[in-house]
Design a protein around this nucleic acid. Structure first.
Length: 171
DNA sequence: AGACTAACGTAATCAATGT
DNA sequence: ACATTGATTACGTTAGTCT
């Protein structure tokens, strides 16, 4: 997979750390018309879908469930602003409704492995994430969530792109 | 070149699990 | 009860596709 690499961007000034900016993303999907139709139809009936429905839909259109979830997230954003941040806890309207993904139990050894990877790179690209998924036996989507939560709760850790602790952006 | 949008980011929050 | 942490949300950003 020849990932075309452009010239390295500047060191400072971006909204996100360099490592966070799109290095090694997963390949972008292109929906077929029938897939689009199925997604839109499902969204229309309820824009908030539990894991069961997401997986059924994913199965039906032949797309991994995490991609379906991202599509729903993106499409809700595109929809007219439902409620801006003010009235935070759901205004009683259409709650996400139950049916979350079952909480993943991360074992000690899995956690240790992820922790090591986190210290080396807080923003692993798709290749690294899939390698970690293979090594831990966890789904790649759970790996991604793990890193998001870890970054949010442990800022400043990790060797690369450390928030403000490191020498990044020493002006 | 610009529009559109999947992929991905943060921040806040919901919620399961262990103490 | 509380702390920890996985899962979901709103919303913003980055970058690949298509016109």
């Amino acid at each position: 997979c020849p990932s075309p690499r452009d010239g390295s961007p500047d060191t400072c000034g971006g909204a996100l750390p360099a490592e966070a900016r799109g290095l090694g993303r997963r390949r972008r999907l292109v929906w077929t018309p029938s897939q689009r139709e199925a997604l839109r139809a499902c969204f229309e009936r309820n824009p908030y879908r539990g894991i069961t429905t997401r997986e059924e839909l994913a199965q039906a259109i032949g797309i991994p469930e995490p991609r379906v979830q991202i599509w729903f997230q993106n499409d809700r954003s595109r929809r007219p602003r439902q409620h801006r941040r003010e009235s935070r806890p759901w205004p009683g309207k259409r709650r996400p409704q139950k049916g979350r993904q079952k909480r993943t139990a991360v074992t000690r050894s899995q956690n240790a492995l992820l922790l090591r990877a986190f210290q080396q790179d807080r923003f692993p690209g798709i290749a690294t994430r899939e390698e970690l998924a293979r090594e831990t036996g966890l789904p790649e989507s759970r790996i991604q969530i793990w890193f998001q939560n870890r970054r949010a709760r442990h800022p400043g850790q990790g060797g690369r792109a450390g928030a403000h602790t490191g020498g990044l952006c020493h002006a």
